[in-house]
């Protein structure tokens, strides 16, 4: 019978606590946590509870059980607002929430939740040693939301050949740029807008074509102003040539 097994069956909370702490220090978080879970109810309302709650939450964190870790740290913060571990708990709770954020192409409520928690941490502890890391994490999550919105808008352009709906990518890209004004995808977004407008124009019936070609031309100029990627520029320039040729038809006829 190991010390752990004995402690597990023991009725003495102090034994459980001591063995638990030892296991925790040795990095055996799962075992330690079993003991902590056992003694938490007994310590409720007592001064020792603070430390046990902290170790309990931290063990979940080390175990990579992000969901429980985030929750336990949050409860720790509610219960002990004056604790010296408050800052660390706030950060680890937020970081655990960050870990729960899924790939950008799926439901993002965890991501938004994590951003909120990280932001709250940053506001509460602007002097924190974790500040830099927290800012990094927020940035990463923001980029995730940005990428999601951009990919959705971009897909409307990808499938426009099938849906015959060239307005959707333009509208979606407009919304995207409004929602994420400083986006890293700005250039590609403007390119896709131009591409969609171009496709719409060249696929138009005669009496709508001229106006749409002119619209596309505007989008081209808009794109050109802020572009530096040679691949996009080359493609856009080619489309622009087509627009110019087509527009010439209209000018010579009138």
């Amino acid at each position: 019978c190991s010390e752990y097994q004995k402690a597990l069956k023991s009725v003495d909370t102090a034994t459980k606590y001591n063995v638990g702490e030892k296991l925790y220090n040795a990095g055996k978080y799962a075992k330690a946590n079993k003991l902590f879970e056992q003694i938490l109810p007994a310590y409720r309302g007592k001064p020792q509870a603070e430390k046990v709650s902290y170790l309990n939450a931290k063990s979940y964190y080390e175990e990579k059980d992000w969901y429980l870790a985030s929750h336990k740290f949050e409860r720790f913060m509610d219960a002990y607002p004056n604790s010296e571990k408050l800052e660390e708990a706030a950060f680890l709770s937020a970081k655990s929430a960050y870990m729960l954020s899924p790939v950008f192409s799926k439901e993002q409520h965890e991501t938004k939740h994590a951003i909120e928690k990280l932001q709250l941490f940053i506001n509460l502890f602007p002097e924190s040693e974790f500040l830099q890391e927290a800012n990094g994490l927020v940035k990463e999550l923001d980029l995730k939301l940005e990428t999601k919105a951009f990919s959705i808008a971009k897909q409307f352009n990808t499938i426009a050949g099938f849906t015959r709906d060239f307005h959707a990518p333009m509208k979606a890209m407009d919304n995207f740029i409004i929602d994420f004004p400083g986006t890293v995808y700005r250039e590609e977004a403007l390119y896709i807008k131009f591409d969609s407008a171009f496709q719409l124009a060249v696929n138009s019936v005669y009496h709508k074509k001229e106006e749409r070609l002119k619209d596309a031309k505007l989008y081209y100029n808009n794109f050109k102003k802020s572009s530096s990627n040679p691949i996009f520029i080359e493609k856009a320039d080619k489309m622009n040539e087509v627009i110019d040729e087509e527009l010439e038809n209209y000018s010579t006829k009138s």
Binding site: E107, F156, I159, D165, K171, A172, N175
Partner: peptide, 27 residues
């Protein structure tokens, strides 16, 4: 429609859902 979005897809990727939409932004 201004924006059209889908929420709750914890498993399925956006592109699998959005390509099935018959309501798109601007429509």
């Amino acid at each position: 429609f201004n924006s059209v979005s889908v929420v709750g897809n914890d498993v399925t990727n956006d592109r699998v859902i959005y390509r099935e939409l018959h309501t798109r932004p601007g429509q």
